[in-house]
Design a protein around this nucleic acid. Structure first.
Lengths: 186, 186
DNA sequence: GAAAGTTTTTGATAAATATCAAAAAACAAC
DNA sequence: GTTGTTTTTTGATATTTATCAAAAACTTTC
């Protein structure tokens, strides 16, 4: 799905706004396993995933901890860095061949100012991401390894086919050995 | 701090907007221990805390799990319910005598439409809350009980004086016995 | 300031999960 | 299709944290 089609879910996109968005965005095809943002690097780009799958992870004592997955029709960036203008604490990579539409932070700020109706899109999208993050946090706070996994199956079933066991395990805050044993039960 | 002063941090508030915000908000003094939103109740109000301390918690197997604390100059509501128009999964209470400025969801939606510049405030505030939530999640994902507590001391030191051990323990996802033992070390 | 209620601490034990190591399986590249 | 690489599984053990129970320390109320 194109970014214009996606944004049309939130407000009516005028022809003028559409051409402006097309002018400030670029779409690239990126092959699986490419790191698009590295740790401690400036992260002033937001990616709209036209097709494909990505993840953000960080290193904790040398071990990769997956912080998020994003699939087609979702946005991906180090939100922390993008919003605060600090360096990325995450490494962002494609897990499948992907088509990514990218917009720079400065272009987006310009867009907000020149097309104030886009502020609403920004607000609503941020609200939706907030809700999802909160749901995820509730699943970490006092749940057992098994409950976390069952909850993931419901909220992100596509990951079972598309992400590796190790990536999934660290996403739900458990080791891959534990997840393997959970899967082996019955 | 009044809500007008607080919002001035994000955009310039015109006299007209100021009087509009004052017209749609009401400020009440609420005594400590009052439940302002109950579990499974409609939550179409957002509270700006002029002074005081609040928390949101839910019941898991009969046990209270604190989901958030909010102090003076912060907003409090069941964001999930407020944004999605569903019922609150949280119980929201004052932990100290508090002055609360409240605005209804419908008034806020009106404000967004009639004063489009307020969309920006909504977006930026939501972004900031998102960042804080993400930081919190990172502290739950793979940290030990002790690390979580040390991290809390840095991010919310005021809680040590103002919230009980049990409330703090469930907020960081551990039992109060474990937190008591952590405090006793050294 | 005594009684009742609440919160915090302490102890003993159980349960869940991590860690380390190695084998097995799956996948990729030539 | 054989070789090398990565991912997943399995086993043995250690560690962390929860659970249950009771005592101690604080608070609140009359």
């Amino acid at each position: 799905m194109s970014i214009i089609t996606h944004l049309s879910n939130f407000i009516t996109i005028s022809k003028l706004l559409e051409s402006e968005i097309n002018a400030i965005s670029k779409t690239h095809t990126i092959s699986k396993g490419t790191i698009v943002i590295n740790n401690n690097e400036r992260c002033d780009t937001i990616f709209f995933i036209k097709s494909g799958l990505m993840r953000g992870y960080y290193l904790d004592d040398g071990k990769e901890v997956t912080n998020w997955f994003a699939k087609e029709s979702e946005f991906a960036t180090c939100f922390y860095a993008f919003i605060t203008n600090k360096n990325s604490f995450e490494i962002i990579e494609t897990l499948e061949d992907s088509e990514l539409t990218q917009i720079s932070s400065s272009s987006l700020q310009n867009l907000y100012t020149r097309f104030p109706e886009t502020e609403r899109i920004g607000r609503i999208i941020t609200e939706n991401y907030y809700i999802k993050l909160e749901e995820r946090l509730l699943n970490l706070q006092f749940k057992t390894a098994k409950e976390r996994y069952q909850s993931l199956i419901i909220s992100k079933p596509f990951l079972l086919q598309r992400a590796s066991l190790g990536h999934i395990a660290s996403y739900i805050g458990i080791t891959q050995e534990t997840l393997s044993r959970i899967r082996a039960e019955k």
